[in-house]
């Protein structure tokens, strides 16, 4: 591959608008898109705005849309892209552009703040015993590196602008962890239905398709949570059994903020 150059068309601009700018970058064996952006910064255009941290697919900072598909720049090899065509690099479309490839993703952090944190029972001072079988499925949601590619791709946010109604796939993954954790005592179903808006999801699985950590967001987070919500709201037989037996309820997560509402009587 040496002695070749690769053509990049990088979107450059700010909130008022922008356009693709063409750069030619020398090819290096095994190079990724982020390497090319660094080359452009060092030798062609020093002020090209790119957000990145670890360059090892562990921090989830360098999210972008490469040839129209949401990806991490540090994990997208040049030799995996069509060789005869220019490579288009654009910022994530679902978030406002700050400059060039950098977008304002602070909305996600505000959402996270609304979710009641992990809430265990009173501390009894003893180390917890948790068996592998109880926590096995909880490792997957913890792999999330918060690159927000799923948020960017989710059509509820991207195409329908339902930022008011839906928290987005990243936070369904967060809820999966909280809801299934054997030590978390909160019932999160009402919060999921009301403030998190899980009903907005129509499980078209794009979040799962773009996840660089290969988290099965739809199959293992959203659908199981939808089923839990269905237990509570869409299952007349369970409803009847609950009415008849009047079983004990867990304390519920608040539907308006991060707090806890009282246990319903």
């Amino acid at each position: 591959m040496p002695d070749e150059t690769i053509t990049f068309r990088v979107w450059r601009g700010d909130p008022s608008g922008g356009q693709e700018v063409e750069y030619r970058v020398p090819a290096v064996t095994g190079m990724v898109v982020l390497d090319a952006m660094h080359y452009i910064q060092a030798y062609l255009d020093g002020d090209l705005a790119v957000r990145w941290n670890c360059k090892a697919a562990k921090c989830g900072s360098c999210s972008a849309e490469i040839n129209g598909f949401p990806k991490l720049m540090c994990k997208t090899r040049i030799d995996g892209l069509p060789a005869d065509a220019p490579i288009h690099v654009h910022p994530m479309r679902s978030f406002p552009v700050i400059r060039d490839l950098v977008t304002d993703v602070s909305w996600n952090y505000r959402v996270n703040k609304e979710i009641a944190p992990f809430t265990p029972a009173e501390d009894d001072g003893e180390p917890w015993i948790m068996y592998q079988e109880d926590v096995q499925r909880l490792y997957e949601p913890r792999k999330c590196i918060e690159c927000f590619l799923c948020q960017n791709t989710c059509h509820v946010l991207r195409n329908h602008d339902d930022f008011a109604g839906y928290y987005g796939p990243r936070y369904m993954v967060r809820y999966q962890y909280l809801a299934m954790h054997p030590k978390d005592i909160l019932d999160r179903r009402e919060a999921l239905k009301q403030k998190a808006g899980i009903g907005y999801c129509n499980i078209t699985k794009c979040c799962q398709e773009v996840c660089p950590e290969h988290i099965h967001i739809t199959d293992n987070a959203i659908i199981p949570l939808k089923e839990r919500v269905a237990d509570e709201y869409y299952d007349p037989i369970r409803w009847a059994i609950r009415k008849l037996t009047g079983g004990e309820r867990k304390p519920e997560e608040s539907t308006t903020g991060p707090g806890i509402v009282e246990t319903p009587k």
Binding site: P117, F118, P120, W128, I129, Y131, V135, Y139, R142, H181
Partner: peptide, 19 residues
């Protein structure tokens, strides 16, 4: 380590359910 666990960190487990 135990404090982190109570804040929601999840470590790999031994067969006895310990960290």
């Amino acid at each position: 380590v135990y404090q982190l666990e109570r804040w929601g960190a999840l470590f790999d487990r031994t067969p006895e359910g310990k960290i």
